[in-house]
Design a protein around this nucleic acid. Sequence first.
DNA 1: TAAGATTGATTGTTCAATCTTA
DNA 2: TAAGATTGAACAATCAATCTTA
Lengths: 150, 150
Amino acid sequence: VDEQEKISAAEALDRAGWVLRRADLLVQAAKERSLKPVGLSTAQYSLLMHVHVYPGLNGAELGRLMGVTTQAVALLAGKLQANGLLERRAHPRHRNIQEFALTQEGQQVLETAYTGVGGVEDRLRAALGPKDTARLRELLGTVIAEFSTP
Amino acid sequence: VDEQEKISAAEALDRAGWVLRRADLLVQAAKERSLKPVGLSTAQYSLLMHVHVYPGLNGAELGRLMGVTTQAVALLAGKLQANGLLERRAHPRHRNIQEFALTQEGQQVLETAYTGVGGVEDRLRAALGPKDTARLRELLGTVIAEFSTP
DNA sequence: TAAGATTGATTGTTCAATCTTA
DNA sequence: TAAGATTGAACAATCAATCTTA
C-alpha cells in the first residue's frame, strides 16, 4: 500500500456523510423560505413543533431532542414567549423546572407554518415517490439509531 | 374532511425532512468529535476539503458548493490562512478575484483530519452495509437534484 | 451592469460558570 | 450530588451595504 496515497478528490465529497449534509442543507433552506411569510425561523418552528409533539417537556429535554443546548432552547423560548406563542409554567413538583406549552396563538401559527412547510415535504415525496420516501426514512432511521449513542 | 384537523403529533416529526435533519445533526456531531484532536471545526474541515477537491475556485463559488455565504467563506479562510493552512492568491486574469489553495501544512492537516472523519463514514457504512449505503446515497442524490433549483 | 470581495451590525449558538432545587 | 436554569463572554454566520474590477 502506498503511504503517500492522496485523498481522492472524486470520492471524498461523495461519501454518505457529505451527501447527507448537502441534502439536509438544501431541504432546510427550502423550509426556511416557506417559513418566511409566517415570520418564523426554522429553529423557532422546530421548537414549536417539538413542544406540540412532546407537551410538558422541560428545556433540557427539548434541547436533547432538537440537538441543541439548553441555553439555545431558553433563548428561543424567550422570544416565542414574548411574541405570545409559548408559555413557560413552573413544573408542579419541581419548582426549578419549567414546562413548555403552546398558547392558542402558538397553535394557530404552528398550523399555518405546518401547512407551508408541508409543501416542502410534499415536494420531497413527489420527487422520490412514496415507496422511496419510505425507504429513505427507513435508512435514515438506521443512521439515527447508530449515532444516537456517541 | 375535518377543517379542525390537528397536526398529528405522531407523524409530524417523522416526515422525511425531519428525519433527514436529525440524521445529519447526529452524523455532523460525530464528525465534530473526531475533528477535535486535529483542532478543526467541521466548517473549517469542509472548506479545506472543498478547496482540495475543487482547487482554484474563488470564495463565492466555494460558498455556493458548501451552502454558506461568501462572507462565511472569507471568515473561515482568514483564520485558516492565519494558521498557515490555506493560501489566497490573486486570480491571474481578474485582479479582484481570489483563488484558494492549500499549503503543504494544510494538505497534511487535511489528510490527518480525513483519516479521523473516515472513521465516522466507516461507522455509517458498517451500520447500513455497502448495499444500503449506496442506496442511501442514491436517494439523497435525488433529493439534492430536486432541491438544487429553488 | 454584473460578479466578487469586504465591512459593519445583528442574530443565533456555544462554552464556561454560577445559582437553584430535589 | 445531580439536573435544570440562567448569565455573560466569545464565536460563527447572516444580512445589508459598499467598493472593486472586468
